[in-house]
Protein backbone atom coordinates (compact mmCIF):
# COMPACT_ATOMS: atom_id res chain seq x y z
CA UNK A 1 0.00 0.00 0.00
CA UNK A 2 1.14 3.49 -0.77
CA UNK A 3 2.27 5.44 2.24
CA UNK A 4 0.29 8.60 2.81
CA UNK A 5 -0.82 11.19 5.32
CA UNK A 6 -4.33 11.16 6.72
CA UNK A 7 -6.97 13.49 5.32
CA UNK A 8 -6.96 15.39 8.61
CA UNK A 9 -3.22 15.94 8.49
CA UNK A 10 -3.43 17.39 4.98
CA UNK A 11 -6.44 19.54 5.87
CA UNK A 12 -4.54 20.87 8.86
CA UNK A 13 -1.61 21.87 6.64
CA UNK A 14 -3.92 23.43 4.04
CA UNK A 15 -5.53 25.43 6.80
CA UNK A 16 -2.17 26.59 8.15
CA UNK A 17 -1.30 27.71 4.62
CA UNK A 18 -4.81 29.14 4.10
CA UNK A 19 -5.17 27.46 0.75
CA UNK A 20 -8.49 25.92 -0.15
CA UNK A 21 -8.00 22.48 -1.70
CA UNK A 22 -10.45 20.18 -3.43
CA UNK A 23 -10.80 16.40 -3.06
CA UNK A 24 -8.40 15.71 -5.89
CA UNK A 25 -5.71 17.95 -4.42
CA UNK A 26 -6.33 16.47 -1.01
CA UNK A 27 -5.66 12.98 -2.33
CA UNK A 28 -2.59 14.23 -4.19
CA UNK A 29 -1.13 15.92 -1.10
CA UNK A 30 -1.75 12.86 1.05
CA UNK A 31 0.80 11.11 -1.14
CA UNK A 32 3.08 14.03 -2.06
CA UNK A 33 3.70 15.29 1.43
CA UNK A 34 4.57 11.80 2.55
CA UNK A 35 6.97 11.43 -0.37
CA UNK A 36 8.67 14.66 0.55
CA UNK A 37 8.95 13.57 4.15
CA UNK A 38 10.62 10.33 3.05
CA UNK A 39 12.92 12.34 0.80
CA UNK A 40 14.09 14.66 3.53
CA UNK A 41 14.56 11.73 5.89
CA UNK A 42 17.88 11.52 4.03
CA UNK A 43 19.26 14.19 6.32
CA UNK A 44 18.99 11.71 9.14
CA UNK A 45 21.82 9.79 7.49
CA UNK A 46 23.98 12.59 8.79
CA UNK A 47 24.70 11.80 12.39
CA UNK A 48 27.72 13.87 13.29
CA UNK A 49 27.31 17.57 12.93
CA UNK A 50 28.06 20.70 14.84
CA UNK A 51 25.37 22.26 17.00
CA UNK A 52 25.73 25.68 15.35
CA UNK A 53 22.86 26.61 13.02
CA UNK A 54 23.40 28.45 9.78
CA UNK A 55 20.28 30.61 9.70
CA UNK A 56 21.64 32.68 6.86
CA UNK A 57 24.99 32.40 5.06
CA UNK A 58 26.26 35.81 6.09
CA UNK A 59 29.15 36.81 8.31
CA UNK A 60 27.39 40.09 9.05
CA UNK A 61 26.58 40.97 12.60
CA UNK A 62 23.28 42.72 12.92
CA UNK A 63 23.95 46.41 12.41
CA UNK A 64 21.54 48.64 14.30
CA UNK A 65 19.73 51.55 12.70
CA UNK A 66 19.71 54.99 14.31
CA UNK A 67 16.29 55.89 15.71
CA UNK A 68 15.55 58.70 13.29
CA UNK A 69 12.44 58.93 11.17
CA UNK A 70 12.48 58.53 7.40
CA UNK A 71 9.92 59.16 4.71
CA UNK A 72 6.44 57.78 5.11
CA UNK A 73 3.60 57.12 2.70
CA UNK A 74 0.58 59.33 2.25
CA UNK A 75 -2.49 57.29 3.29
CA UNK A 76 -3.66 57.45 -0.33
CA UNK A 77 -0.42 55.90 -1.54
CA UNK A 78 -0.51 53.26 1.19
CA UNK A 79 -3.97 52.27 -0.03
CA UNK A 80 -3.06 52.42 -3.73
CA UNK A 81 -3.00 48.66 -4.31
CA UNK A 82 -5.65 47.79 -1.73
CA UNK A 83 -8.52 45.75 -3.17
CA UNK A 84 -10.92 47.17 -0.53
CA UNK A 85 -10.70 50.37 1.42
CA UNK A 86 -12.93 52.71 3.34
CA UNK A 87 -11.76 56.27 3.88
CA UNK A 88 -8.19 56.07 5.02
CA UNK A 89 -8.59 52.49 6.14
CA UNK A 90 -7.94 49.11 4.60
CA UNK A 91 -11.12 47.11 4.80
CA UNK A 92 -11.80 43.39 5.17
CA UNK A 93 -14.92 41.33 5.81
CA UNK A 94 -15.69 41.52 9.50
CA UNK A 95 -13.42 39.58 11.80
CA UNK A 96 -15.45 37.97 14.53
CA UNK A 97 -14.09 36.99 17.90
CA UNK A 98 -10.86 38.44 19.04
CA UNK A 99 -10.05 42.07 18.79
CA UNK A 100 -6.77 42.38 17.02
CA UNK A 101 -4.05 42.59 19.57
CA UNK A 102 -0.48 41.42 19.51
CA UNK A 103 -0.77 39.19 22.51
CA UNK A 104 -1.97 36.25 20.46
Amino acid sequence: MEEKLTREEVLHVANLARIEIDEEELAMYQVKLKQILNEIEKINEVTSYDEGMLICPTENKCKLREDTAGEMLEPREALKNAPRSSGNYFSVPVVIGETGEASA
Binding site: I40, I43, N44, D50, G52, L54
Partner: peptide, 13 residues
Protein backbone atom coordinates in the same frame (compact mmCIF):
# COMPACT_ATOMS: atom_id res chain seq x y z
CA UNK B 1 13.92 18.52 10.48
CA UNK B 2 14.31 22.28 10.24
CA UNK B 3 16.76 22.70 13.11
CA UNK B 4 18.76 19.78 11.93
CA UNK B 5 18.81 21.12 8.39
CA UNK B 6 20.25 24.42 9.63
CA UNK B 7 22.96 22.55 11.51
CA UNK B 8 23.95 20.40 8.55
CA UNK B 9 23.86 23.50 6.40
CA UNK B 10 26.44 25.08 8.70
CA UNK B 11 28.66 22.04 8.28
CA UNK B 12 28.22 22.05 4.52
CA UNK B 13 29.34 25.66 4.35
Amino acid sequence: YYDKALKIRDDLR
